[in-house]
Amino acid sequence: MAKHDVDLSPLFHALADPTRRAMLTRLAEAPARVTELAEPTGLKLPTVMRHLSVLEEAGLITTSKDGRVRTCAIVPEAFQPVRRWLDEQRAIWEARLDRLDAYVMTLMKERET
């Protein structure tokens, strides 16, 4: 991997968990307090904090503290490396499928003659 490439492993690790994805979906609406994020999960606060730390370490969210209230916000631009990688993969697979389609069409034409 080139030096300028972003390490996608922490991003995909963070996105691999459904609880973290649900938290990101909620944060896409607006910043939220940790207690708001914890409520729908039914998880204990230390577990929620571990999930949030994974998201923060991956750069997908930021947190700020005001007194005893910790607020989380999504970092939309942090998803760009994942999107670029997925777009590259899509292009590769579309090209492969196009070649396969052309090959199958050639075989079908050869059988007709």
Results as ranks from 00 to 15, higher is better:
1 M>P: 03
2 A>M: 03
4 H>K: 13
4 H>D: 15
5 D>T: 15
5 D>S: 08
6 V>N: 09
6 V>Q: 14
7 D>T: 09
7 D>R: 08
7 D>L: 07
8 L>G: 06
9 S>V: 09
9 S>D: 15
11 L>I: 13
15 L>T: 02
15 L>D: 00
17 D>I: 04
19 T>H: 11
20 R>W: 11
20 R>T: 03
22 A>F: 01
22 A>L: 08
23 M>I: 05
24 L>V: 07
24 L>R: 04
24 L>T: 03
27 L>S: 03
27 L>M: 13
27 L>A: 05
27 L>D: 00
29 E>M: 14
29 E>T: 12
30 A>G: 11
30 A>N: 11
32 A>N: 08
32 A>L: 08
33 R>Q: 14
35 T>W: 02
35 T>L: 08
36 E>R: 05
37 L>T: 02
37 L>W: 06
38 A>T: 03
39 E>Q: 15
40 P>S: 15
41 T>Y: 08
41 T>L: 04
43 L>G: 01
45 L>R: 09
45 L>M: 15
46 P>T: 00
46 P>L: 02
47 T>Q: 04
48 V>C: 00
48 V>Y: 02
49 M>F: 03
49 M>L: 12
50 R>I: 00
50 R>C: 02
52 L>G: 01
52 L>Q: 01
52 L>A: 02
53 S>I: 07
54 V>M: 09
55 L>Y: 03
55 L>R: 08
55 L>P: 04
56 E>S: 08
57 E>F: 12
57 E>R: 15
57 E>P: 02
60 L>T: 00
61 I>R: 06
62 T>R: 12
62 T>L: 14
64 S>F: 11
67 G>Y: 10
67 G>N: 07
67 G>W: 04
68 R>G: 10
69 V>Q: 07
70 R>I: 05
71 T>S: 13
72 C>G: 01
72 C>F: 02
72 C>V: 04
72 C>H: 00
72 C>Y: 00
73 A>K: 12
74 I>Q: 00
75 V>S: 06
75 V>R: 05
75 V>E: 10
79 F>D: 01
79 F>R: 00
81 P>G: 05
81 P>N: 07
82 V>W: 05
82 V>D: 01
82 V>G: 00
83 R>M: 15
83 R>E: 13
85 W>P: 10
85 W>V: 09
86 L>S: 03
87 D>Q: 13
87 D>H: 11
87 D>R: 12
88 E>M: 07
89 Q>V: 09
89 Q>F: 05
90 R>S: 14
90 R>C: 14
92 I>Y: 15
92 I>N: 08
93 W>I: 10
94 E>W: 15
95 A>E: 02
98 D>W: 11
99 R>Q: 14
100 L>T: 15
102 A>S: 11
103 Y>M: 13
103 Y>N: 14
105 M>W: 10
105 M>E: 10
106 T>A: 13
107 L>Q: 07
109 K>G: 01
111 R>P: 01
111 R>F: 12
111 R>A: 15
112 E>I: 11
112 E>D: 13
113 T>Y: 12
